[in-house]
Design a protein around this nucleic acid. Structure first.
Lengths: 219, 219
DNA sequence: GTGTATATCTCGGGG
DNA sequence: CCCCGAGGTATACAC
């Protein structure tokens, strides 16, 4: 990784046009070639950047970075204050726990917490618009598509609606109804779901996880 | 801005739990207090981070970063290889051109480029599912909801459909039709829009901007 | 503050 | 390769 502190101005031309007036900034060049220009604030997002793969041409007074899509980043160097390189090696990577997948696994084991009599048929049931999180049958044997989210918002209802439209085109499946399950559901999403006859269920993730570990302790 | 290169391991506990095994990384601390841990690859996004506002406590062998939401970032320092600070000053900030807002402003001034006789009634017209970009009247006085995008894709059609459904529930407004305006519209979006009687218009942003600056020069 | 939409979103998975 | 969905999304903007 190369770290350059410089008084510079920057122009980006690509998906939009953007310009940075002259100021002192940190320019980070990673081993994969990606370039990021950081100010001393504004969360972790750089002011300007160019991801790999790209080509960098270093002139005396400016850097030009191109990528295959025709985007272009031009850094004009007015004064280089420092320029250091350090070898970091390959990173072993990030281990995560507690994302949507976890909630899906728990609900796949106990779909009846969403509705009495609900039974799992299959997880990640494929449609040609993407997979339904849980495909279940209800107490009467009818099909129910369940979409699981951490937060249920308008987009979630749209997504489930698309799946339902698709599934209900198939006479062997029809009728399929939907349930949106999330730890929290916005009133607007609830409104839209209701208008489309989609049920909404708020799920207590922490409670379920607790119950799960209690069962593990019992056996 | 402070730049520390260190062999470290990291734990985050907050909206999820995440862990980074021991490796050499760059730790960036900005003037606003935000902390970002970078590997030598993977675009501009850090492996782990904690945005401002937060509190950092620096112990001999570890850094603890907390934020008011109860999230926690723990950096265990196994070996500090370098630790430098540099003053960057306040950044004048990024100037952008070509995002959706600009297109919206231009089209609000000249809605008739979308359709002859179109007249602006109101920008950001509210519905209970979100705001319509432009609410217009057509040459016959009927209402037209315009959704503006840089790129018109399936989601854009869904979004406009949602608004139209909502607006057409109101007998004082009905009937309201829709126009999707974008610099480019995918064939799939065009197809879906057509199936829903929604008009699509591709807009020449550069041409409009050019026309706008010409007018400015004339007056 | 809440809620919605945008983003040069980034990133990863599946066809 | 593109498409789609998730994200500790972050960020801006309107109400």
């Amino acid at each position: 990784m190369r770290l350059v502190v410089a008084r510079c101005s920057v122009t980006y031309e690509g998906r939009l046009a953007a310009h940075l007036p002259e100021a002192i900034r940190l320019i980070m060049v990673k081993a994969d070639g990606c370039v990021a220009i950081h100010a001393d604030g504004g969360a972790y997002k750089p002011l300007n950047w160019m991801n790999a793969p790209n080509t960098m041409v270093e002139h005396a007074d400016r850097w030009e970075v191109f990528n295959p899509k025709g985007e272009r980043l031009l850094i004009t160097m007015h004064e280089v204050l420092s320029d250091e390189s350090v070898a970091l090696g390959v990173d072993p990577g990030l281990v995560k726990d507690g994302v949507e997948l976890h909630l899906q696994v728990i609900l796949a084991e106990k779909p009846w917490v969403l509705e009495e009599g609900l039974n799992l048929m299959r997880r990640e049931y494929p449609t040609d618009l993407g997979p339904v999180d849980l495909m279940c049958t209800d107490r009467y044997g009818a099909l129910v598509a369940v979409e699981i989210k951490r937060r249920g918002e308008l987009d979630s209802v749209e997504q489930l609606t698309r799946y339902l439209d698709r599934l209900n085109l198939d006479p062997r499946l029809r009728p399929v109804r939907g349930i949106l399950a999330a730890q929290a559901i916005t009133p607007q999403a609830r409104l839209l779901a209701e208008a489309r006859q989609i049920d909404t269920v708020e799920v207590d993730y922490d409670g379920l996880r607790e119950a799960e570990s209690t069962e593990l302790r019992l056996f």
